[in-house]
Design a protein around this nucleic acid. Sequence first.
RNA 1: GCGCCUGUAGCUCAAUCGGAUAGAGCAACGGACUUCUAAUCCGUAGGUUACAGGUUCGAUUCCUGUCAGGCGCGCCA
Length: 565
Amino acid sequence: MKQQIETAIARYLSTLLDAGAAVPEVVLTRPKQKEHGDYACNIAMQLARPLKQAPAAIARQLIDGVAWPQAVTRAEVAGPGFINLFLRQSAEAGVLHTVLQQGAEYGRLPTDTAKPKVNLEFVSANPTGPMHVGHCRGACVGDALANLLLARGFPLQREYYINDAGAQIGVLAESVWLRMRELQGETIDFPDGCYPGDYVVEIARAILREHPFATLAALDDAGRRAVIGPLAVAANMAMIRDDLAALHIQFDHYFSETTLHQSGAVERLIAKLQQDGLVYRGTLPPPKGKEVADYRPVEQLLFRTTRFGDSVDRSLQKQDGTPTYFAADIAYHHDKFQRGFTRQIDIWGADHGGYVSRVQAAVAAVCGLKKQPEVLLVQMVNLMRDGQPVKMSKRAGTFVTLREVVDEVGADAVRFNFLTRRVESQLDFDLEAAKKQSEENPVYYVQYAHARCAAIVRKAAEEGRVLQPATGDTALLTSDEERKLIALLTEYPDMLEKAAARLEPYRVATWLMALAAAWHRFYHKQRVVVEDAALCQARLLLVHAVRQVLANGLAILGVTAPERM
RNA sequence: GCGCCUGUAGCUCAAUCGGAUAGAGCAACGGACUUCUAAUCCGUAGGUUACAGGUUCGAUUCCUGUCAGGCGCGCCA
């Protein structure tokens, strides 16, 4: 209906304007106040300048000239030049039948293989320990975004990049080894840099079951690390997968950084860059803004990322000759490209914001893609307890794990909590409040709406009132509450479309709260199980449709839709 | 010093990519359960949209500046 009207206006506009003139896009919006009709259009005001006429006059002309669809009963000029449109009472109520026909598919599009394949990389927590709360927000946003894009027909894969190379894995292996020695009865003075968590002890114990201490002790440091490192990484990844499962997150693909080094992909990539003349040996200016007492200019292997918009060239090799994390990351994004992903979305913490321009520069240079990857910077979460910030340090082992939070607060509440906010807003997450408010949490508001729908359907069935297919006279749904619900249901696909286009899953959550509010309001004003059989059927139709769309939206957020609460 | 993000009710956040009278939840106060679930609803109160300019029919939204907070700034990932 909305689109019908838009094209009707656009068609008339094209006859009104000169052939060469740019026709502005006609967009209908839902007015906030019902006095302003079912839809409003601001096109007359936008045309005032090019046509050099008063907005009201243009609006008048449009109202008289446009071949309005039959459902439009009234069109009027209002305010500074809006065109307010009023629809026949039940003009949009057909959506109820559509929802029931399409069921879980309502709002979704079939996968469109013509669209660029999307690789969505998120979480990618270092495999040096369990996931902590800091990873939580990005995990929820990434998973919901994946659901959202899949729902709108984008071919998409969820990917986790395992940073299982680099110095940190050596530190991990050393930490495990120290715990092994401790388990043998040695007294160990744990150095600062090591991972102190109890899970390291567990890993040490588990590895010792397969690899006797004496065998490990006989190896030199490097040899021992080569044995312990991968085992410790595997153990941590198993733990991380469990943590993710607790949040109801599954990845399609785990990608190991180590494979990039072993296959020679990183070296080949640097060679290619050299061939393209994008690499040189040089020195970088000292870093700004902080005291660097021991700064010494060192000649190093640099990548001319400045040619692709970066502010400074970036190093590809550490002093010991091994590739930097950045070098491997270029190879990684190139690998995605070779796997056919011409659209890459990365979700990072805000602390990696300074890294965006160099990776985009690299991808432009290596893959020829513009503005890739698309990076969502998720702002930091301050973990609080009773209003006091919780001091956390991975080094000191005083971090709150994701698992603790999920176990205490519940996966649904955790997810919804992080999904109602835009990623740009930094927020506080208070553990005590989250637990205390567990019954006042917005997630329950939406879930309760769903459970209420289910309760009505059950109650109606008890009284022998079951929705008959192809019944439900939508013309009977004329109250403000009913029309509001119908209007919201028609918006659902548009809302998903916008949310997907902007990579903003929070829109789904806020929209669901609006639908739930409209539903609760309806519930208090009108009864469904009533004597009048026709009216009962019509309202049952509405109930089923609302329940379905609540369920569909919650599914995208990865939140359960309970039948009872 | 520079770059990115943010600043909206007491608190947490929205506001349809410039639209009409800036809205929800929590907290406060007053009402509504013999009727499909009161984890709900209705009402009251709460605002110079950080501040100052600019752009135009119209600004929370766009531009400039100031202030405040967060994050980042050599070969750590």
